[in-house]
């Protein structure tokens, strides 16, 4: 899956199909993410197969058919549930992914310490166990754990889904800033079109199950200029397109 992708696309998805048992989840999805577009958002209704697609992109799952090509060698995931180890401190949770790489213990600690700062946590937070952290802080730890392994491909599966509005905005801004700051190419899965409009360089809308491509929409406005007014207007404009409102089952 790491062969040279065609043209200048970083990520190339070609007619990918997948089924669980007899139930077809992905019915042939094709799209591309050009190298200059750092954030791709896959939008679809809950249960439309977008998490399955993300797992395939990250190499956790082999597709039944089709092809995924990209030059990335080190993917990292953030899931909707932070999936922290309850018996490890925040610091050790951040360092967890490094255990798969040949990193020494002091290096792991240093990297974890560095990442605590990057995601806006204090050294004292690093000593805490997940149980003592708030939901937002746990999600920051999960993000730090993904970034700690210096991924070149970041896969986010509804990472802000369980956070309330204020925290979600803060996390969105943090993620976008880190990506613009020389961060990895990113694919984010969400059911929230507004979140996609806020974050994405390219929005990929999937139909309901079995998922196919419904629409692709590019945004080139910088993140800082995407205020609430812009997001609202853009979402309204997108929902005016019947193929998008149909895929998301929203009355136009």
């Amino acid at each position: 899956m790491t062969t040279t992708p065609p043209e200048a696309d970083a990520l190339h998805v070609e007619n990918v199909t997948h089924a669980f048992g007899r139930e077809s989840v992905l019915g042939g999805v094709s799209f591309a993410l050009p190298a200059e577009q750092k954030v791709g958002c896959i939008v679809g209704q809950s249960g439309c197969g977008k998490s399955t697609l993300l797992a395939i992109l990250g190499g956790l799952l082999r597709p039944d058919g089709g092809r995924v090509t990209h030059p990335f060698v080190r993917p990292a995931f953030v899931f909707q549930d932070p999936c922290l180890l309850p018996w490890r401190t925040a610091r050790d949770n951040i360092a967890f992914g490094l255990k798969a790489l040949s990193t020494t213990r002091p290096d792991r600690r240093n990297r974890a310490e560095e990442l605590l700062g990057v995601v806006g946590l204090t050294a004292a937070d690093g000593d805490k166990y997940p149980e003592a952290l708030s939901g937002g802080m746990r999600q920051r730890v999960a993000l730090a754990r993904a970034l700690a392994i210096r991924p070149d491909f970041l896969l986010l599966d509804e990472p802000f889904g369980s956070l309330d509005v204020g925290l979600r905005r803060a996390m969105q801004a943090l993620v976008r800033r880190l990506i613009d700051d020389g961060g990895p190419a990113t694919v984010l899965v969400t059911h929230d079109l507004a979140e996609a409009v806020k974050l994405a360089d390219r929005i990929v809308v999937l139909t309901q199950k079995p998922a196919r491509l419904a629409a692709i929409h590019d945004l080139d406005r910088p993140f800082a200029a995407r205020d609430d007014g812009f997001v609202q207007a853009e979402v309204g404009r997108l929902l005016g397109r019947p193929e998008i409102s149909g895929a998301l089952a929203i009355e136009a």
Partner: peptide, 16 residues
């Protein structure tokens, strides 16, 4: 199972 999925995603060895 979520923790297992997470660990698999990070490709940690069996000993870990």
């Amino acid at each position: 199972p979520g923790l297992l999925r997470m660990a698999t995603a990070f490709r940690v060895p069996r000993t870990v």
